[in-house]
Design a binder for these strands. Sequence first.
RNA 1: GCGCCUGUAGCUCAGGGGAUAGAGCAACGGAUUCCUAAUCCGUGUGCCGCAGGUUCGAUUCCUGCCAGGCGCACCA
Length: 569
Amino acid sequence: MQKLKEEIGRLLAPRVSLEPAEVISLLEVPPEPSYGDLAFPCFALAKTRKKPPPLIARELSEEISGENGLFWGQAVPRGPYLNFFVAPAAYGREVLQEIWNRAEQYGHSEVGRGGNVPIDYSSPNIAKPFGVGHIRSTVIGHSLYLIHQALGYNSIGINHLGDWGTQFGKLIVAFKHWGDERELKNDPVNYLYKLYVQFHKQVEEEPALDDEARSWFWKLENGDEEAVDYWNRFRQLSLDNYELVYEQLGIEFEHYHGESHYNQMLDRVIDIVKERGIASESEGALMIDLEPHGLPSVMLRKKDGATLYITRDLAAAIYRYETFNFARSLYVVGAEQTLHFQQLFKVLELLGFEWASRCVHVPFGLIRFKDGKMSTRAGKIILLEEVLNRSIEMARQIIEEKNPDLPDKEGAAKAVGLGAVRFGDLNNDRVKNIEFDWEKALDFSGETAAYIQYAHARICSILRKAGAEYKTWDDSSASLLDREEEISLVKTLALLPDKIFASAESYRPSILARYLIDVARDFNRFYHNCPVLNSEEELKHGRLLLISATRQVIANGLALLGIEAPEEM
RNA sequence: GCGCCUGUAGCUCAGGGGAUAGAGCAACGGAUUCCUAAUCCGUGUGCCGCAGGUUCGAUUCCUGCCAGGCGCACCA
């Protein structure tokens, strides 16, 4: 599509006294394929030419009627638009050949120029179970990691574990009051979670527990041996549990720098803030006044000397800059923390760090039940493990029913089951809240990962049956694709690079996810109307090249969403 | 009270100054001598939350309002 645009740009630019780049940026895709493939709107010319746009469109079409386009067949005026139709032979050959040549690299680029992009994602709170709420950060973050990598950035996955803070005081108190060593050994994470919930129930009757918890956290921050000992055990037990989930999801992090990692930097952060004179003491606490900037003030140090979340986040931000000198620094964290990040970035700016503008909060909506928000404290939560297992089980059942002779049922069930869960989090705009619904989470029809994976598997099946002699590039075969279903599929395949880029620039993997649905839909229409293996020799070769390119696009796209593309299912 | 986000078909959601506003689900009806029917084709539905404003043109941009969600100093 890019070459077509460039050609139109060169052609039109001198006739409308604009730069080719300006013409290209004006081009749009008509709402209806029958109107054409690219449209040049003439509204902008109306003022300078003092003519109504429809007349300009007609005149332009006459002016260029003698020109022969390489990639466009004809240019037809329609109302205020000049509509260009692609020349199927040249265009199809061009697109398919690019995919053929670049293969796994198709859609990738070097725009990132190796710039470091630390991505803070997943980042669960230690000693709390990994619920479906965390999966959004994990899945979206991981996809952004892969997408940035594909654009030539050096992605750096950081699991900013919530392994510090008052919650550890609470856990220690709960464990000392009600803890049972045997139960802890048995099922550590769920047991710690039980204690956490119990603490919050009990504190309503015994408010003193809160003070006790605060004091234990104070001890922890001051290196009390017993406190540190508890902390170490709770932390390690939780980590072991998370790693099982990450392994299942195929995710690895470059760094497991939790909040505790920044403890030794906190004094320096406080010093820097004092040096710049933006902090002040208030009722014994250290504050930064953000009121002049339209934000609530933040507290860096409590009156008892303990630090807060934002203090550690400041340390983390500075650490990331000093370590990675990043091109961008992403925080894939829930929308409920938007204010926190506004405050964080504002403080960085007040500290005079020009790189503050390169820090980006990538927020996402909550997962909710029909009757309200999930809450770790209240024990209202669905475990991710359970969702993943049920999803895989459901996929297994469907395979048993539809394709009982499949050789690798287990592999396919895993790919489809995990893909469904991931896709559910990726296909809608991330800022919207999601209502958790088992039926929807386990539905494999319609706009789902399975729809895309199925198209991929069907293509693989056809390619397996085709002889080896078709596994070569052939110019003339690739030029034969002129049916509507073929052209429309080719045009969709041409969009992958744009979609990957757009996903990165807006930090929205949903753009890529939705695009892959379009690819699969276009393929299915083609598949139902155009026989491949039963076609006449040269056309058969051309169609094999087309579906081979389609397979490549789906495989490349799904890979960037972290979803497997099985060859059979 | 203040701030941020959301409001599009019965449901879940795409789209995003311009050409008749689109998918999936659900409902109903069709398609398999043929490459896996997890598919495809057809049928119906919209004060694009409300009211103003900018514009040749607004569902899209601006302002106000309404509704829902989230957040607002010793949690993370």
